[in-house]
């Protein structure tokens, strides 16, 4: 019956509130009224299922998936880890998507006008499906920092955006991963919106020398946690649910 169980209530004290003036765009894009609490029905505990046949062979290799005339320039890294739920259980067979700037902090996007150049051999996105142990991995170039229009001199730390599904639509999550030791981290107006220091630190990937490929590629390790499910004990469960 574990598939039909409801998700734990989201701990909003560990999540950023909607209205965070330090990040200016949030001011006009944050609801002013309270969220309406909705207990889980089938609409929340179910979600899309994705298959390996929808992905290409190089989808988790950003060094090769947009290589046109050669390989992209920059620090070659592996990013890997597990997708778990709050009970510590693996989240298997779920879609993980990621996107990022190139080594110079420039995004391949028609709206990015930063003067650092596009890398002709780097697209900046990828995706994979977790294995039966919730494990994911991909290879890429470490992204550069870049400026953004918030305060007059705001720079984003190096980061990779992640999109996660889990097994139910209520687990849907978009977040960002940062790199251990980056001195921009404590100054970042976007990371600051998370009120809890430990929750901010959990977004920082750790250097993982044991999984580097010697003379080839450095590794970083980052585990992701999605909402857990509770056991259903003495609830009235009628046929069909």
């Amino acid at each position: 019956m574990k598939d039909t169980a409801e998700f734990f209530q989201r701990d909003r004290s560990l999540q950023p509130p909607a209205f965070t003036p330090v990040y200016k765009t949030s001011v006009l894009r944050s609801p002013r009224l309270a969220l309406w609490s909705l207990q889980n029905s089938l609409s929340e505990v179910t979600g899309p299922v994705f298959g390996h046949d929808e992905l290409g062979e190089l989808d988790n290799d950003l060094i090769l998936n947009y290589a046109k005339t050669g390989q992209p320039i920059g620090e070659r890294i592996i990013v890997h880890g597990r997708v778990l739920d709050e009970n510590g259980r693996a989240v298997p067979h779920s879609l993980v998507e990621f996107w990022q700037a190139n080594a110079g902090g420039r995004y391949r996007h028609k709206n990015d006008t930063y003067l650092a150049p596009i890398d002709p051999n780097f697209g900046g996105c990828g995706r994979c499906i977790t294995d039966e142990n919730g494990y994911y991995y991909f290879r890429t170039i470490k992204p550069g920092a870049y400026p953004f229009r918030n305060r007059v001199n705001d720079w984003r730390p190096a980061h990779i955006h992640f999109s996660l599904f889990g097994s139910g639509f209520a687990q849907r999550l978009i977040t960002q991963m940062y790199f251990e030791g980056d001195p921009l981290i404590p100054h970042d107006s976007i990371l600051k919106v998370i009120p809890d220091e430990a929750a901010r630190q959990r977004l920082v990937a750790k250097l993982d020398l044991n999984n580097t490929v010697p003379l080839d590629t450095i590794a970083y390790r980052w585990d992701i946690v999605l909402r857990g499910k509770r056991s259903t004990l003495f609830e009235n469960k009628l046929e069909g649910n």
């Binding site: 510590g88 955006h161 430990a198 999605l226």
Partner: peptide
């Protein structure tokens, strides 16, 4: 206490299309 905490959300940012709608 739960053994783990849900990973904190962050904005998708203005370039979300790169990853999700290239």
């Amino acid at each position: 206490e739960l053994p783990l905490h849900e990973t904190a959300s962050q904005t998708a940012g203005p370039y979300v299309h790169i990853g999700l709608i290239p």
